[in-house]
């Protein structure tokens, strides 16, 4: 396997904690410069996979190569070339924003003067220059997240691991982050991202896998997955809470697939307006009707089900 060709190669990768299997044998290959996404509900095994790639969790079995190296034996060398943005910010609350970046760089053995210059540049990049002297605690969620991202870039990583980078952020903060991640991608950094926001996956990922119960259930580009698993458009109609199921026989045959939810019917179709006309032709009048484009969210719900997992 050519190390430069593929930053991450996993074959039959398994992670067990006692009797519990978090990752049940997955094959993944991430190409250089690619933004690769892991999607899945909570407990699907995304974070366990990320921790194995991050060399802080030894795989139970299977093979994992990062930059062509073994994460257990060569963890130090691998981590030296990697940046990690964990799911929950693990910033050093006892230090200022600037100091957080500086000491982090020192863990990579970057010289003191280099790391200071680099930290300044990164704070500018994430638009936090004026917060350099502030402690971490008073920052907003979005600011902390940006500090985490700046910190993960201190060693100019070849591979960036982002575990749910925008969970808990307001829309403005999310868009700023997306913008920065896109810039990084353009500079050629490989990114591995987990998320359960479908819009985020569509925005950020070239290619992604959907995980459920520790296994990969689908793989492809965002557009490819939509084309493969759902139709182009969705017609959402409402007949009143709990009464939607009664309407099923009447609606049958409209669109390609119909899904019943307690509060509405979802009709997957290539042409939403045509399907709505068909309903009207059958003299079915819903309380409300909405035609929208299919999204990754529809793929996701189809593949992983609607039951709450927690």
């Amino acid at each position: 396997m050519d190390a430069i060709a593929s930053p991450v190669v996993a074959t039959g990768l398994v992670k067990q904690f006692g009797d519990f299997t978090a990752v049940a044998g997955i094959d993944v290959e991430v190409a250089p410069g690619e933004a690769f996404g892991f999607l899945g509900p909570n407990g699907a095994g995304k974070t366990s996979t990320m921790r194995m790639i991050g060399c802080v969790s030894p795989p139970t079995s299977g093979s994992l190569r990062i930059f062509g190296l073994d994460p257990v034996a060569d963890g130090r060398q691998i981590r030296a070339r990697m940046g990690v943005v964990p799911q929950l910010d693990q910033l050093d609350n006892e230090l200022t924003v600037m100091e957080n970046l500086v000491i982090y760089g020192r863990y990579f053995d970057i010289s003191r003067s280099d790391v200071k210059a680099k930290a300044k540049e990164l704070l500018e990049f994430v638009q936090l220059t004026e917060k350099a002297g502030s402690k971490v605690d008073p920052l907003s969620g979005g600011q902390k997240r940006r500090v985490s991202i700046a910190r993960s870039l201190i060693n100019d990583p070849d591979l960036l691991l982002l575990d749910e980078p925008t969970t808990g952020l307001d829309p403005q903060a999310r868009h700023v982050l997306w913008d920065r991640l896109y810039q990084l991608k353009e500079r050629g950094a490989t990114q591995v991202i987990t998320t359960h926001f479908m819009d985020e996956a569509e925005q950020l990922c070239d290619r992604l896998v959907v995980m459920d119960g520790g296994l990969i259930v689908a793989e492809g580009s965002p557009q490819g997955l939509i084309a493969e698993h759902v139709r182009r458009e969705v017609l959402e109609v409402r007949f009143g809470y709990g009464r939607n199921i009664e309407m099923m026989p009447a609606v049958d045959g409209v669109g390609d697939r119909i899904e019943v939810l307690p509060d509405r019917l979802l009709i997957y179709t290539d042409d939403g307006d045509a399907s709505l006309s068909e309903l009207h032709r059958r003299q079915i009048v819903p309380e409300s009707a909405l035609v929208r484009r299919s999204s990754l969210e529809d793929v996701f719900l189809k593949l992983t089900g609607r039951t709450l997992v927690e």
Binding site: V56, R79, D92, Y104, Y107, F108, D109
Partner: peptide
């Protein structure tokens, strides 16, 4: 609580 060591271990520190 602060997960300081988790963060440190994502770097080349052991």
């Amino acid at each position: 609580h602060s997960k300081l060591y988790d963060a440190v271990l994502t770097t080349p520190m052991s």
